[in-house]
Structures are given as structure tokens and as C-alpha cells.
Lab assay of single mutants.
Amino acid sequence: TIDDAFRAIERAIQAENEGRYREALKHFLDGGEMIVTAAEKEASQKVRNLLLHKGKEVLEWAEHLAEWILE
């Protein structure tokens, strides 16, 4: 659900702030994927587009974090 997705993102932010970057990455990926999944089930085109945009933002952040971890 969207609530689960945002809880995962909150955990990711907390982990990132505490320097637990790999854990943060996992939570960002989980949250982003949950948002995209919820968007695919959404009946309203406007809400679907907003959710897809937010999911994409979260997944892009996860990608940047992963690249930073690997440096």
C-alpha cells in the first residue's frame, strides 16, 4: 500500500541519516517499487501519473545512492 511505501521511505531516510547506507538503499528501493505497484492499480489517471512520478523519483534517488556506495 501507499502507507507501507511511505513507511519504507521514512525508514530509508532515518537509516541514511544514521549512516546505514545499504539499509537505506534497500528501504528506498522497497518504497519506490511499492509506489509504482500502487500506481499500476490506480483507477484515476491523474493519481496514477502522480504516483508514477513519485515512485520514479524515489527509485532514481536509490540509484544515485547505490552509485555513491560503490565509489
Rank of each mutant, 00 (worst) to 15 (best):
I35C: 07
T37L: 13
A15Q: 01
M34W: 09
G19K: 03
E23H: 05
E57K: 13
A15I: 03
F28R: 00
H64P: 00
Q45R: 09
E57N: 06
W68R: 06
I2E: 02
L65T: 00
I69H: 06
E60P: 00
I2G: 03
M34E: 02
N49A: 05
E40P: 03
A5W: 09
E18A: 10
R7T: 05
R48H: 04
E71L: 11
A38F: 11
S44P: 01
E16K: 13
L51W: 06
K46H: 12
K46Q: 11
I35L: 15
K41R: 11
R7A: 09
D30W: 15
A15C: 12
E33F: 14
A12K: 00
Q14E: 08
A43V: 12
Y21I: 05
L65H: 00
A38S: 06
E57I: 13
K54F: 15
G55E: 02
V58Q: 00
E40R: 11
E57D: 08
D4V: 06
L52M: 09
N49T: 07
Y21A: 01
I69Y: 05
E10C: 14
L65G: 00
N17K: 14
R7W: 04
N49Q: 10
M34Q: 06
A38T: 07
R20T: 00
L51H: 01
L50S: 07
D3C: 15
N49F: 11
E67W: 12
A12F: 04
L65C: 04
E10M: 14
I13K: 06
V58D: 00
S44T: 10
V58C: 06
E23Y: 03
K41L: 08
L65Y: 03
N17W: 11
R11C: 11
A62F: 10
E33K: 15
A5K: 00
H27G: 11
A24H: 03
K46L: 12
K26G: 05
L50H: 07
A66K: 11
R22V: 11
D4P: 03
R7V: 06
E57P: 01
N49S: 10
E16M: 15
G19A: 03
R20K: 07
L70C: 14
S44W: 10
F6N: 04
D30V: 13
I69W: 04
L50K: 08
A38N: 02
G31S: 04
A39V: 10
E57M: 15
L65W: 04
L59W: 06
E57W: 12
Y21T: 02
I35Y: 07
R7E: 06
Q45M: 11
I13L: 07
L51A: 01
S44G: 05
A43R: 11
I2Y: 06
I9F: 08
R20C: 09
L50P: 01
N17H: 09
N17M: 13
R11N: 05
E63R: 15
I9E: 00
G55V: 13
L51F: 04
E10V: 11
A12H: 02
L52N: 06
A39D: 01
A12E: 00
A5R: 01
E40S: 12
A24W: 05
A8V: 12
E23W: 03
I2W: 07
D30R: 14
G31W: 10
L70N: 11
A39L: 11
G31V: 12
A24E: 01
K54M: 15
A12M: 05
S44Q: 08
T37E: 12
A62I: 08
A38M: 13
E42C: 14
V47H: 04
I35M: 14
T37H: 12
T37F: 08
E16W: 15
E71I: 09
A39S: 05
N49H: 09
T1Y: 08
K26S: 05
V36C: 13
A66L: 13
Y21G: 01
R20F: 06
E71H: 10
E10F: 12
K26R: 11
I13R: 07
H27N: 06
G31C: 10
K46T: 12
L51G: 01
A66I: 09
S44I: 07
E67V: 10
R11Q: 10
E16N: 11
R20M: 04
L29R: 13
K26Q: 11
E10K: 12
E60I: 09
K46C: 14
R22W: 12
H64D: 04
G32W: 15
A62R: 02
E23T: 04
E57R: 13
E57V: 12
